[in-house]
């Protein structure tokens, strides 16, 4: 068991742990954007830079494994300046429209912007803007707010099994999108809303209707009688309701205190059930233990559910009674503006 020193605190951690988790064990938070425990670290946001004694360059906390006797600083001027620099770059083209952004209040960019950002802006140029394109009729995409962490791409590829979103273009005009603005053809597409650390992907149903700090968050599960598509909902309805004055304003996945999703929820649970009678409230659900690894991918969950439902005789003649995906999330995009590419 290597012993590492993080900001003067000695901790003993298991072999192969990253600096990020060692620091969390020592009670020190290292800010992250692109890191998500569900995926292999990608290291492209660079906000988690820390100083390791004896190593010339700053190292990323989310990927660098600990070694015995490692001395890590997360709170000195060099690290602070690097993080401030990364924050400045991330906010360079950010519209700073927090007052009208649905993510405000639970936005990583806001939190770390207050902690590490410049109090003044040094950009003297027009901001880069993108035309607004959405993922279907349920998910709003505001590319101007995006910080290019690529969590949504990795979620779609690794957990939904769809390869329909990716990076377009290169450099500072690179853009996350689906080719010809199609929706994400998966019954689990709404999870990109929860995985987005900023307000780039938001729930269109909840749009402009409530502020997250007004909502009361209640863990709940969909009643079996209310499920239209039990194959997805059986393992995809462990949700969190956002209530305001007894009315559901939004449904999200359950998250731990680092705002990491406990599991995925299906699009039916997220978008279709806004009646409290459809839900069973689970007050004692565990929402504090930090998530350290990803859940099963959507396909496996569906197969498990299908097998169980067949055994219970709840599927008609063993056939899956699943509504076609177009009814749930993959309605065509807001318009196939093919001319945009040549703009």
């Amino acid at each position: 068991m290597p012993t590492v020193t993080i900001d003067g605190k000695q901790v003993e951690v298991p072999d192969g742990l990253t600096i990020l988790w060692a620091a969390r064990k020592a009670g020190v938070n290292i800010p992250t954007y692109c890191y998500y425990p569900w995926f292999a670290p990608q290291g492209n946001c660079r906000i988690c830079l820390v100083e390791v004694e004896g190593v010339g360059k700053l190292q990323i906390g989310c990927q660098t494994p600990v070694r015995d006797g490692m001395v890590v600083h997360t709170n000195n001027e060099r690290v602070f300046k690097a993080r401030r620099g990364v924050m400045e770059f991330l906010l360079l083209h950010h519209p700073l429209d927090c007052p009208i952004c649905d993510q405000a209040g639970e936005c990583d960019l806001q939190d770390y912007g207050y902690k590490y950002g410049f109090p003044v802006g040094r950009n003297r140029h027009l901001r880069r803007t993108f035309p607004k394109t959405d993922y279907g009729e349920k998910i709003s995409k505001e590319m101007n707010r995006c910080i290019h962490c690529r969590r949504c791409i990795r979620l779609a590829e690794d957990y939904m099994g769809v390869h329909h979103i990716g990076m377009l273009n290169r450099g500072d005009h690179s853009e996350i999108g689906s080719y010809i603005e199609a929706a994400i053809p998966s019954g689990w597409a709404g999870n990109v809303i929860d995985i987005c650390p900023v307000g780039a992907l938001t729930d269109k149903k909840m749009r402009f209707s409530a502020r997250v700090w007004d909502l009361e968050h209640v863990p709940a599960r969909l009643k079996e009688s209310a499920m239209k598509d039990p194959v997805k909902c059986r393992y995809g309805s462990e949700a969190m309701l956002g209530l305001y004055r007894g009315k559901i304003y939004r449904v999200t996945a359950r998250m731990d205190e680092h705002r990491v999703m406990k599991s995925m929820i299906c699009d039916e649970a997220r978008f279709e059930h806004y009646d409290l009678d459809d839900w069973i409230i689970e007050e004692d659900a565990d929402i504090t233990t930090p998530v350290e690894s990803g859940p099963r991918p959507a396909r496996e969950l569906e197969e498990m559910a299908r097998k169980e439902l067949e055994e219970e005789g709840k599927l008609n003649g063993g056939r899956v009674e699943s509504p076609p995906p177009s009814e749930i999330s993959s309605a065509p995009g807001t318009g196939m503006d093919l001319g945009r590419q040549t703009e």
Partner: peptide
């Protein structure tokens, strides 16, 4: 366009 400092910094 992969990591932040180069993506935003070079254009700036």
């Amino acid at each position: 366009g992969q990591c932040t400092p180069c993506r935003e910094g070079c254009g700036w």
